[in-house]
Amino acid sequence: MTLEKITSELFEKLVELAQFSLDPAESEYLRSELNHQLAAVKELSEIPIDVAVAPTTHGLEVEGAASRADEWKLYPNPDSIIALAPESEEGMIAVPDVAANRKTAQ
């Protein structure tokens, strides 16, 4: 089975989905490393896997605490979380005023 490599077009699509904007040198390095990594994992597609093997998402099955009750709780200090946002208004995280920024750009 041939696994497709990352073409320039596919790479641009991935970059768009990942919400990046990259300069040409960065793009070239990243695309090259992606293709190297995909070559490195090619082996995975060739390993004989018994149909009885079930996938595992955690290795060991965790005997964790029972799920918490689905109850609303007041966070003791919400201001400390809001304060982390680059911009906030009246106790809420503010999405930037796009029109104002466009003006700045001009």
Partner: peptide, 15 residues
């Protein structure tokens, strides 16, 4: 199917 699902099975085989 080729990557992620296979990798999770290989993880089970390693364990």
């Amino acid at each position: 199917a080729n990557y992620y699902q296979r990798a999770l099975k290989v993880r089970a085989m390693i364990r």
